[in-house]
Simulated scan of single mutants.
Amino acid sequence: MKILLVEDDPKTAEYIARGLVEAGHSCETLKDGTDALFQVTRESYDVLVGDRMIPGLDGLSLVKAARAAKVKTPAPFLTSISGVDDRVEGLEAGGDDYLTKPFAFSELMARLNALARRPPVQDEKIVLKVADLELDIARRQVQRRGVAIELQPREFTLLEVLMRGEGRVLTRTMLLERVWDFHFDPKTSVVETHISRLRAKIDKPFDVPLLHTVRNTGYCIHAPR
């Protein structure tokens, strides 16, 4: 899943983001509700996780504004405000779940997975396609020409990021940030290694390659031209 986390407490944000990335998901973090609204209306996410007490737009206002802008991304609240009336207010504002702090990370993951399994809202794009390659986000399944392809969690996330950017060149730095949540260069070959593994699974068994290396720039996935 591609997740946007809005949390202004650095330690909490780091803890959640690390756990999500280790579970094979992509997680971007912001601490300001106004920035989050801008981000969620310009880019597609599978889940928007937000605290209620954040700078800029508070959590309730963020979700209300997102819904007004026709953003259908599931939006669970993760907050220390735990009264019954507060939970009702959050759900009526357009939130999809309400988890109070302190929380167990395993419960957070279970709730996010439950949201991902929900039937999609009409016209929500949960199956990505590039030529004859299909990636089903909700079911975590990949196939090409009807042949199932088994991917490890990080490989799945890498392919999802590449397919969301179909036709665009994604640099090594961009992939490190979106797939591994590295905001620095760890000086390893992790990107190259995973690209090689991914190519062996989605391209080599077939006669038409979709994943391309752009010399000295990055990687791009696109249909045959």
Results as ranks from 00 to 15, higher is better:
A69V: 08
A114C: 02
G146D: 10
L62F: 15
F182L: 07
L158D: 00
T12W: 01
D86M: 08
K204Y: 11
E166L: 02
P120Q: 11
G33A: 02
F206G: 03
V169S: 05
T34A: 07
R225A: 15
Q39L: 01
R42H: 15
Y45P: 07
E89L: 15
E28N: 06
G33H: 06
R87Q: 13
R164Q: 13
A36H: 06
V121F: 11
Y219G: 07
L91G: 02
A23C: 11
D207V: 02
R172W: 04
N113W: 10
L128E: 01
E92K: 14
I137T: 10
R168T: 07
G165W: 06
I81P: 00
E43Y: 12
V147P: 00
R197S: 14
L175Q: 05
G56D: 03
R168H: 11
N113S: 12
A200F: 09
A104E: 14
Y45N: 09
A148I: 10
R118W: 05
E89D: 13
E150I: 13
I126C: 09
L133N: 03
P120H: 07
L30R: 05
P205L: 07
R215H: 12
F156T: 04
F77I: 12
L151W: 06
P74S: 11
L30N: 00
T188R: 10
T12P: 03
K125I: 07
R199V: 10
K201Y: 08
P55G: 06
I221Y: 01
L158Q: 07
T213A: 11
Y98K: 04
G95K: 08
V88H: 07
T34F: 04
A93N: 09
L135K: 00
K125M: 06
V142H: 03
P209E: 04
R168E: 12
V121W: 07
M1Q: 10
Y98H: 01
E166Y: 00
M163F: 00
R18W: 02
D58P: 06
T217C: 10
E124Y: 12
P153E: 08
M163T: 02
P74F: 14
P186M: 07
D32Y: 06
L151P: 02
A17Y: 06
R52A: 09
G94P: 11
K187V: 11
A131G: 01
D85Y: 09
K11A: 12
Y45K: 09
T79D: 04
V121N: 09
P102T: 04
E92W: 08
Q152E: 15
E166W: 00
V127N: 05
